[in-house]
Amino acid sequence: MKTLFILNDPPYGTERCYNALRLAHTLLEKEPEAEITVFLMADAVIAARKGQKTPDGYYNMERMLKRVLAKGAVLLCGTCMDARGMTDDDVMDGARRSTMDELGDETLGADKVLVF
């Protein structure tokens, strides 16, 4: 099964990104053959910024996205990156800049689309 997660909220301050990635991890554990794609839009693109430092005991979006990357894909809206002053050099290894056109293709190819 192919599942597309579309995340919009900032990585910290709300728990929507956190909960979306928790669900993605659960799906990967329950169905090892699952295909997971996470598309980050709006303020969620900041979740893929490399070198995040969070307090001990606090979740870290970069580490959570790395778990998805082990078996899936993490795509960032290029327009949203530009609007927030992010460059490709700011993005964690494995994640990459994408487009609305690619999001359209991912949406059409997915069995399920979950929006957070």
Rank of each mutant, 00 (worst) to 15 (best):
A42R: 07
G72E: 08
G94Y: 06
D90L: 02
L65Y: 14
A44L: 10
R96H: 09
G72H: 05
C77P: 09
D90P: 05
R63Q: 15
P55E: 09
G72V: 09
C80M: 04
A95N: 12
G57Y: 08
L40M: 08
Q52L: 10
R84N: 02
K50T: 13
R67V: 11
F39G: 07
L69Y: 11
M61I: 10
Q52F: 03
A83H: 00
K71P: 00
A95K: 11
G78S: 12
F39V: 03
A34E: 13
D56N: 10
T79E: 06
G85D: 04
L65R: 12
M92A: 09
D43H: 05
G78M: 03
A47Y: 07
D90Y: 03
L65N: 10
G72P: 06
Y59C: 04
V45Q: 04
T87Q: 11
Y58W: 06
G94H: 07
C80A: 15
L69Q: 12
L76M: 10
F39H: 01
T37I: 12
A47W: 08
G78T: 13
K71T: 14
I36M: 14
N60Y: 00
M64F: 10
A47Q: 09
V38L: 07
A70T: 12
R96W: 00
L69A: 08
R97Y: 02
K66S: 14
D56P: 15
V68K: 11
R63K: 15
R97H: 10
F39P: 03
G85K: 11
I46A: 13
T37S: 12
K66W: 05
Q52E: 06
T79V: 09
K66H: 15
A70F: 01
R63N: 15
R96L: 02
L69M: 09
L69T: 08
V68W: 06
G85V: 05
T79Q: 13
A48H: 09
D43W: 02
I36R: 13
M81H: 09
V45T: 12
T37K: 08
E35D: 13
M61W: 05
R97I: 03
I46D: 00
L65M: 10
V68L: 07
V91H: 05
C77W: 03
S98I: 05
K71Q: 15
Y59H: 14
D82S: 13
V45Y: 01
L75G: 00
P55N: 11
V68A: 08
L65C: 09
L69H: 08
R96T: 09
R84A: 02
M81K: 06
K50V: 07
R97T: 05
R49S: 05
Q52V: 02
K53A: 14
A44D: 05
G85A: 04
D90N: 13
D88P: 03
A34T: 13
T37R: 03
C80F: 01
A83R: 07
G57W: 04
D93V: 08
R49M: 10
D43K: 07
T37F: 02
D43V: 03
S98N: 10
L40K: 04
C80G: 02
F39C: 01
L40W: 02
K50A: 15
M81Y: 03
C77R: 06
